[in-house]
Design a protein around this nucleic acid. Structure first.
Lengths: 185, 185
DNA sequence: ATCGTAAAGGCAAATTATTTGCGTTTATGG
DNA sequence: CCATAAACGCAAATAATTTGCCTTTACGAT
């Protein structure tokens, strides 16, 4: 999606945004997250540090901005034949991605930023994936839980465990899916 | 609880820890979180900045350390007569505290820190409160859900919503409690 | 008690990051 | 293609972080 950046003269350049994001991704790929600094990012992006400070405020906000983009799903949930199978496949992959080192860091970056907007977006992405699965199930004439309910009973416990230290394994995720499916209507 | 700090000579002084924590709490009470800096904390605590840097590493870790202490419940859940009533009373208060400005900041501070230990502690505190409610219910001979299940079905959704932008109101919390109580055994 | 020792803390210099003022460039509407 | 408002670059000023070196402190052993 090309963002309609601005309607006023001298609007923000998408060029700077792109090169800074790229620089962040590249730096995160090859060094510890704590070693990445704004002057470093600026140098690699070919801009001055003050540009980044003025535009994003601080490192936290910039990292959140980059993280939320990387958290955007790049494809539809796979069709595994039934609502339950779809949900299971999706949830297992979701849990695995989010509990991986990079996944956890991205979530942390999103949550650590002041601006709550990024966290919301992140939640919206997840919700949208479940909406797709739910619609597919409905189209097949299957019973499927309400999306909000699935967020409460499946997504929330997975995320809570990841954030608060008790990473769920595949069996636990399947149990959560089974539980969520019991409220299908 | 007096922490048994150290068994080696020259162990960490609890005095410094206490005055630094106190300084952080006082500063957070009277200024914006983003304005609190390590040199400021050090000055108020009567120590040098380097002491704080060496001991906590960075502001994030120090804030997480202070936040987790403030998140420790200072009393048992109130006895409202039944397991369900206890859970309802507890959950409403929990949701309210955690979704308040200071509550959210404390959670953010805990989650933003590198060290996962603080987040675990935080989760343990919550779990312990529910254990107390569950034991009380059992002692009364009531049916009550498994504690892990209550964490999944009640605590996780509340926290997820708070973190990802959709703060739950009292009615939603009561609905979650009702749902959790359905799995009582 | 007091002594030896290892870890913590103070101090100050060196480094690095952040903020800011000001002039220049750039994207957009007219 | 001109006027304009927002971004950007540059560099100086400020603030935060790191580091080396020395002093103090708390603990175990004698």
């Amino acid at each position: 999606m090309a963002v309609k950046e601005n309607l006023r003269p001298g609007g923000r350049s998408a060029r700077v945004q792109a090169s800074v994001h790229k620089a962040v991704r590249e730096l995160l790929a090859k060094m510890n997250r704590t070693e990445v600094t704004i002057p470093l990012i600026a140098a690699r992006a070919g801009v001055t540090p003050s540009t980044i400070y003025r535009r994003w405020g601080d490192l936290q906000e910039l990292l959140a901005d980059v993280a939320v983009e990387r958290l955007r799903p790049d494809m539809q949930p796979v069709d595994a034949g039934s609502g339950k199978a779809d949900l299971e496949a999706w949830a297992e992959q979701y849990a695995e991605e989010m509990s991986s080192g990079p996944g956890r860091e991205m979530i942390r970056d999103v949550l650590a930023a002041q601006a709550g907007a990024n966290a919301c977006k992140c939640c919206e992405y997840t919700r949208q994936q479940i909406v797709v699965i739910a619609e597919r199930a409905k189209a097949r004439g299957e019973a499927f839980p309400d999306v909000d309910r699935a967020m409460d009973e499946l997504v929330a416990p997975i995320m809570y465990r990841i954030l608060f230290g008790d990473v769920p394994d595949a069996a636990q995720v399947r149990a959560l899916v089974a539980r969520a499916m019991q409220s299908a209507s």
